[in-house]
Design a protein around this nucleic acid. Sequence first.
DNA 1: TCCATCTATAACCTGTTGGCATGGTTGCTA
DNA 2: TAGCAACCATGCCAACAGGTTATAGATGGA
Lengths: 302, 302
Amino acid sequence: MDLTAALRAFVRTIETGSMTAAARDLKLSQPAVSKLVRNLETHTRTKLLERNGRAVHPTEAGRRLYAGSGTALATIDGTLESIRSEQGDISGPLRLHCPVCLGETYLCGIVAAFQKEHPNVAVQLTLENQPPDLLKQNLDVAFRMGELDDQGLIQTRIGLITRILVASPEYIERAAPLTDVSSLRDHDTIVTDAVLSPSGILKLKRGRKSVDVALDPILKTNNAHVLVEALRRGQGVGTAQTLLVSDDLAEGRLVRVLPDYEVAATPLHLTYLPTRYMRPAVRSFADFSLQALRKVDGIVQG
Amino acid sequence: MDLTAALRAFVRTIETGSMTAAARDLKLSQPAVSKLVRNLETHTRTKLLERNGRAVHPTEAGRRLYAGSGTALATIDGTLESIRSEQGDISGPLRLHCPVCLGETYLCGIVAAFQKEHPNVAVQLTLENQPPDLLKQNLDVAFRMGELDDQGLIQTRIGLITRILVASPEYIERAAPLTDVSSLRDHDTIVTDAVLSPSGILKLKRGRKSVDVALDPILKTNNAHVLVEALRRGQGVGTAQTLLVSDDLAEGRLVRVLPDYEVAATPLHLTYLPTRYMRPAVRSFADFSLQALRKVDGIVQG
DNA sequence: TCCATCTATAACCTGTTGGCATGGTTGCTA
DNA sequence: TAGCAACCATGCCAACAGGTTATAGATGGA
């Protein structure tokens, strides 16, 4: 029996919670996974999974096998890949997860540059604003915004994503003068869900002093492109991640307003699971993306 | 490709220093091992072994793969076996090594008792007086006499094997009186190689005081049965491990002489390699044999 | 120079494994 | 309660992987 294949199927089944999902992952048919697990059970003379029609759960023995063999498999994979990479040939899969806005604007370029250096790395880049489940989705690296309290997760702080208040020149021309933050109430505002507190408060800072403004925005969106596009069209004034609008600012399509005020910056982290071995492709990409992102205008240290 | 099989063949090849030997170990043909290693090399795109006609040596990459996958494989095997054993069924191979005299007299009985409790454990018991190479011979546990300086070896002290001076009643009748240790020179002496220093000195102790006696034995042997048999036949007086002659003493076939004197006792150790996982059969037998041996007359604590 | 020992290769065969199609079970939902 | 959807198990078939035997090639020692 191919123990490696059987264990891999078993481990993925537990992680995804379903043989069908594991089969998709492993590019096998569902019966194949079913058989592999069955073989493993015969071999250990023990029921490893509790089949429940709907889902499968590991038995006590299954949990122990998972704990023991999961890391061992990862070690083997990591060692093998590290030996291949020693030949100067970094390869293997690289599964990434990233918030949509960052992914669309910067990460895709970073991935392209990385793949140019390492053409044998097969990237799967998932963009979602939901926080990912690294285990279930089998992710190598996830970029995450905001403060994380997730235990059992290694996180490297990349920097702070700054936001600024911007508007198009046309809008500024047209609308009431924006002399002070209190006048924001009289403006059409456009924001991301994330920057507004549930009660609709935007937190700003002027120097050390923090200022809260209650907004009633004309547009709230979770999509950065939509947001920036609306700002460009002159639909209003709003907060935007600096990294999303630096080009627009440089070319005059957008103008920073109330430049004395700072919008609360969001930390950006690179996260991954503490596997025994960091596969070379993963390690290499982590370094690569970290350096690239820290150079981005709109991501600052602090 | 069956990664487990390939890695196993590779690991055993490095440990034994030859594919042919690894094949014997794994109960495969030599070409099978050759192919497995070749597959592994193809898979890693790296030469892992330097074939040298006479012997094979790992390349740098091979050493790294060995370091990484060796323990991982052991972990997997151990976990699987531990799950099987959870079913109350301790099983698997158990490879033991032991000095001949101890093995013939006591260990064989201990092994039999152990197998009675755990009939699915397949024991290979090698009796040799040469110190074993646990890695090359693929041993789980080795019993060793004497002080060991072997690093990278876990050793549990079982106790001290005592030796005493004995002779048969017939011999004592016939020979010169044995009033003092100095009169030993005038006797026919029978010893194990091990107790004599290279220059032929037997070290004794009387209380705190150590006494050296130069002997010119009529029989030196490395085999305990030969030694004891010679003593029983009345060929002379000699040193014997207490555990070998306790029956003879009890039944009057041998008599202890010069009982004030002690022969230097030899420590007995149970040794094994520090593998990540101690397989259940191994752990269980280690406990079992330790308890049994400590009860043996002639093995004392200290 | 021959021999012993070890590895590589070729040819062949068997057994396992994976895929497909299908049937059974479970839990949700209307 | 019945129908549906999702998931796992099983039987059958084809393909390939991995095993063995036989043989050739290389290397170090006597």
